[in-house]
Each structure stands twice: as structure tokens, then as C-alpha cells.
Write a protein that binds this DNA or RNA. Structure first.
Lengths: 226, 226
DNA sequence: ATTCACTCTGAATAGTTGTTCAGTCCTTGC
DNA sequence: GCAAGGACTGAACAACTATTCAGAGTGAAT
């Protein structure tokens, strides 16, 4: 007798896997990576602890996939925003703004994904995540350089530094603690975006214009819809 | 009978405490915070594990004090460099360069102090450490603003962002891996310092001048002496 | 010399979680 | 229905280290 997976079963298995990942994501969003423990996640996903191991070989794999998932979402959002911009400088501004917005709107999750201590080794996954996002930013910087809007520079290092600045200023331990207030939030996004653009060499006046253009409009959208 | 501590004993106790801290620092410099475990540190300091607890109530306290110590050293170096500079912009450039140099010259330790996962809670100590360094940078930015060299801005946020950029670019997971090469090291320091200065609004040409002035000379000194 | 306070030792303890696996339940194919 | 493959359960296990503490050691007071 040959056991064959019914479509229904396949669907259920996939759903369960998603449920576990979603549970992990919720836990991380609420309590940071520290809250992503097998037993609680299993409870949240309505399965037993052992079941988690039928879907993920280890906690490290679970968290790695969580990081990858969140990272994919963010990368897509960055690309969407940048591709919709009229020119390379606008695209860069849009990309930076998007990172800032995403980071801010889910600070706890962002902190967990980026830097929070985890008891298992997820450095490879974190590295990949950062590499992707940084690569995207580097590409946008490069486009602006090639368009003559920015001076030539080490775009990879610049992109890395920009991300570091954004993250530290928005979710790091020294980040202002009132960033839930939409007004403060908007100000913070504008400020860090301005810093970032100036850092790569956008002229101050032009940077201010780009920042206002890129944050005021999408900001309200972002705060309403996804 | 009243037992009184001889001067000699007091000295020995202090020496032992220093030895334990030094052992912890060495361990962190070699293997990151993960290597700062009670038993190995005790061995390195030539004491038994239990003795560590006569000097530090817990591992968290030990690491907190290690962080504070390293932080004090760095702050002193920043102040020394900045105070020796001729003007506020130079002082800012010197401060930023110093952070970059210090960070780079002890990358593993810096990573441990700043962001490496630790199994005990040292967030308060890390927060204090960052607050001090960021405060110093903020002060220097403020001085440059008041001197009319920089546009008005949120100096605290700017300082935080600058540190984030430096750290991410120099010791983060995306940092170039060949930073032991003095030439690459110098280039990296120059690049990130330039980014940082431009970010707060230093004009490009002037920034380049400051960067060269602040890195080329002290760099060689730093690589030779402490 | 002797006592006593204080310090040091390091093996044993304890608490925390990720991981396993024997038994149970469900679903498939006949 | 009913056998058998696969999935699920959750209590038990394992491993790792911070922490403790009873006993040994050290040196100050008399």
C-alpha cells in the first residue's frame, strides 16, 4: 500500500507551517526574540512542542526563516517605493524612507530581526537579510551616482552605514521613546532620512525637498493602510 | 578581637579584582562576550570560580563593569582628541575619527560591548555606555552648530545616527573583512568619517579637508602607540 | 602560639530550554 | 471496516553554565 498525500493534507501541513511561523512572528513582535521559545510558540500555534520539530529542524531554523520572511517583506516594500519614484535621487529617498517607516512601525520586531540577542546562532540569516537590504540601497545609491546626482563613493559601505544610522536612531537603545506619536514619528523619519541623504552627498537644499516629498505623502498612507 | 585590613591586603584585593576584570576583557577581546564565562575567566585570572563572586555579585555585574570600563577609556580618548583640535568642526571630526579608530582597532571587543548577544541582561550598562559616547558627540555637534559651521538640527538624534553608521560600517556583520590591512583600515576610517560629517551638514569640500587632516596624522600614531 | 575573621576553593547544585521519542491519533488505500 | 503509514503529543531528557556553600587556607590580633 502506498500512502499518498491528499491535496487537503498538503494544504493542512502548509497551513500548520505558516501558523507556526506566524506564531513566532507574533511572539517576536510582542516580546522580541526572547519571546520566541518553542513551547510558547507551539501553544500560540495550537500544536505541541514536538510538532514544531516536524516543520523546523531546530529553533535556529525557525528563527532564520522568520528573519528571512520579514526581510523579504521589507525588501519588496523598498523596491515598490523606489520603483515608483520619478528619478534616481527620489528613488533613493523613497527607499530610505521606506526602511525608516517599516522599522519604526514594528520596532520590536525590527530590533529582534536586527540585533537582539538570541540564544541560537542566526548570524547567517541575519547576514543574508542585511546583505539583501544593503544591496538594494547600494544599487539605488549607485544609480544616483551614475546619474551625476551624487559624488562617486564606496556604495556598499555607504549603504551599510546608512542602514546602521537608521536602525540605531530609530530602534536602538538610544532611540527616542515617544516614537509612537505620529507627529514625532514623522519628524524622526524626516530627520534621519535627511541625515542619510546628506551623508551620501545630496546637497542640503535638494535633500530637504526630497525628504518632504518622500515622507509627507506616503507617511499618511503608511499609517492608514499596510 | 577586631580584624583590620592591612594596606597590603587591601592592595591584594584590589589587584585581584582588577585581574578578574582584565581577564574578562581579554576573553572578550579574543572571543567576544560569549567567551566571558565565569569558569574560563576565573582560570585566566588564577582564581577559582567561586572567588569571582566575592568581587562581582553576578555575571551581569561583571560584564556591566567591563562595559563601563571600556566605555570610560573610549570617552577619554574622544575628549582628548577633540579637545586638542583647533576648532569645533575639527573637534567633531577628531571625535568621529577617534570612535572609528578605537572601534576598528578592537573590533571583537567593540562588537561585544555594543551588540553581541549576552545571556544575562546588560542592557542598562550598554545604554549608559552609549548615552555617554553619544552625549559627547552631540556636544561636539552642538558646538559646531553654535559656531555657525553646521545647520541647526536635533543633535542627540544626529549623534545617535552617526554612531550607528560608524559601528555598522566598521564592526557590523556587513563590515568589510579585510580591515586589518592598515591601508584598507585608513580608507574605511576616512570614508565613514566623511559620511558622518556630511550627514550633519558639513560641506563636502570642507569635510574632505577635515577628514584628511584628522585621520592621516593620528592614524599612524594610533597604529604605533596606544 | 593560638585564635578568629576573612578569603579562597571547586565540586555539587540548580534552573533554564531546546530536543527527543514511545505511544496515541488520524488519514489513506483497499 | 481495517490495516498501515504518517503526524501529533507532551513528558522526559540533555546540555550548558551561573551560582552556591561546606570546608580548607591565610594572615591579623593578642
Amino acid at each position: 500500500m502506498v500512502y499518498r498525500r491528499t491535496h487537503q493534507v498538503v494544504k493542512r501541513l502548509a497551513a500548520r507551517r505558516s501558523a507556526i511561523l506566524a506564531a513566532a512572528r507574533e511572539a517576536a513582535a510582542e516580546g522580541g526574540m526572547a519571546a520566541v521559545q518553542i513551547a510558547p510558540v507551539a501553544v500560540r500555534a495550537n500544536v505541541a512542542a514536538g510538532t514544531v520539530y516536524r516543520y523546523f529542524p531546530s529553533k535556529a531554523d525557525l528563527i532564520s526563516e522568520l528573519i528571512a520572511e520579514v526581510s523579504r517583506d521589507e525588501l519588496a516594500a523598498i523596491r515598490r517605493a523606489a520603483d515608483a519614484a520619478p528619478g534616481p535621487s527620489s528613488a533613493l529617498a523613497a527607499a530610505v524612507t521606506t526602511v525608516a517607516l517599516h522599522t519604526l512601525s514594528q520596532r520590536r520586531l525590527a530590533w529582534g530581526i536586527l540585533a537582539e540577542p538570541v540564544d541560537v546562532d542566526v548570524s547567517a540569516s541575519r547576514l543574508a537579510s542585511r546583505r539583501e537590504i544593503a544591496g538594494e540601497i547600494a544599487t539605488r545609491i549607485d544609480a544616483a551616482v551614475r546619474a551625476g546626482h551624487l559624488p562617486a563613493q564606496d556604495t556598499a559601505l555607504a549603504a551599510t552605514a546608512l542602514l546602521g544610522a537608521l536602525h540605531e536612531a530609530l530602534v536602538g537603545p538610544l532611540a527616542p521613546d515617544n516614537l509612537d506619536d505620529p507627529v514625532k514619528m514623522r519628524d524622526a523619519v524626516q530627520t534621519v532620512t535627511l541625515l542619510a541623504l546628506r551623508a551620501v552627498g545630496v546637497m542640503d537644499a535638494r535633500a530637504r525637498g526630497l525628504v518632504v516629498q518622500q515622507t509627507l505623502l506616503p507617511m499618511t498612507k503608511a499609517l492608514v493602510g499596510a
